[in-house]
Design a protein around this nucleic acid. Structure first.
Lengths: 235, 235
DNA sequence: CTGTTGGGAATACTATAGGATTCATGTCAA
DNA sequence: TTGACATGAATCCTATAGTATTCCCAACAG
């Protein structure tokens, strides 16, 4: 084949990383599904080498797992136990991040935060499924903004090491949980924002903690309802 | 050429990962030095492909950095600013880890902890440089044991993502500064251990926090002395 | 002397091919 | 029928070669 392809200025492995990241976060792959490198190579019309390199990096995000000589598989879904542990970890990191961010606010930062809060409120109430599907992306932006403003690369990296997993409870709350809970999250985000504006670090940390605790409860409830409406048929 | 080599049961990329990890942590490479994949390929008698895969994974440990089309470089040494930020991040994570570990102690866990504490005390007072060189490895074992016992894979992973232990090891590997400080660290470890034995979670967290704060001060002092020693050579 | 530009060497990046290992299917014996 | 074993296909893993990009340095214009 060897279609020369007008070689972009960016390495193929980088582009493949982004492509695979997108594929793994939009539900195209089901949990635990094996990743066939040869098939991917033919489908995306690239060789196996850059795909392998991209997968090696994705492994550290927790989206894919690699077994010694068996290849890559999409990470399995989180059990209820793991879900609880994940939220507990966020309960340790995020209040501290909010505390530090509150002591380093800038006008640009605050404007970006309030923008994300408004976007989330809009997405929560919007009947447009297209907008609502971006809900978790907007939610993530709020938290990443605060993590960045904490001005501690190590803490931010530690938080990001959880990020790949955070994206995954899109599976639990696919449009099923649209009963007002998202609106509550937007309200809590706004409460954190107000503490940030006021520069009250302790209050920002406290409100962030409460937000995570509430989100933890909501996620567990959603999961129960999903279990109740169990559909054995895949896909 | 390609001497087939006695086919090992484990993939070459995995072995290369370990080899490179060892090379980057024993002072063989200097900070900021470029990593020539071709030269490494000839020196280690393997092809470039598994080396590239191993480096892609090492990038997430913070030991090497990758620039778009320029290749890999050994990560630069931590600045004083970064060192402070690293210890601040540990101040967030490790007390929480100690708290959780204290509520889940087992006899096996406690025996391993006290063993690491005793080993650290021996290594600190030993005049044998061979033993002392393993000092930071033993110190790391103490912290990793507690991180594992906290029974939260996400928090443990977040702590590992800091790579702080590795960085510190790399920092001191060259001069092997041995003052009375190591003995102090062993004392503080023992204090944490006693709180763990008593099952007093709050006290364990508090003592861990104090230990990190003290370690932070000691690290900064050591760094000043290093600056003083390297000053005459610099411009 | 300074800044720019061109050419060559070194190096990173990608593609393809082949060997090694694992999984699946079918056959035979108990 | 059940279990074990052998054979074949699919797939992962490694090596080599070729292409594209970057870096180094010398030569030249200002």
């Amino acid at each position: 084949m060897a279609s020369p392809r007008k070689s972009g200025r960016q390495p193929l492995a980088d582009r493949m990383y982004e492509v695979l990241l997108g594929q793994f976060t939009d539900g195209r792959w089901s949990a635990g599904e094996p990743v066939n490198i040869g098939a991917l190579s033919r489908e995306l019309d690239v060789s196996q080498t850059p795909l392998r390199e991209a997968l090696a990096r994705l492994e550290h995000t927790g989206l894919v797992r690699r077994e010694a000589l068996k290849g890559y598989r999409v990470a399995p879904l989180l059990t209820e136990f793991e879900l609880i542990k994940l939220m507990d970890a966020r309960l340790v990191l995020e209040p501290a991040l909010a505390y530090e961010a509150a002591r380093r606010t800038t006008p640009e930062f605050l404007s970006e935060v309030i923008e994300s809060v408004d976007d989330l409120a809009r997405a929560a109430t919007s009947p447009d499924t297209e907008v609502f599907s971006a809900y978790w992306t907007i939610d993530e932006r709020f938290h990443l903004l605060i993590a960045a403003q904490a001005d501690n690369p190590f803490l931010e990296k530690a938080y990001r090491s959880l990020g790949g997993q955070v994206q995954r409870f899109r599976f639990f709350a696919k449009l099923g949980s649209a009963r007002g809970a998202p609106g509550l999250a937007a309200e809590e985000h706004r409460a954190v924002y107000e503490a940030l504006v006021a520069g009250e670090a302790d209050e920002a940390a406290s409100r962030m903690r409460r937000h995570i605790e509430n989100a933890k409860q909501r996620v567990l409830e959603d999961r129960k309802s999903v279990e109740a409406a169990e559909l054995p048929a895949g896909r």
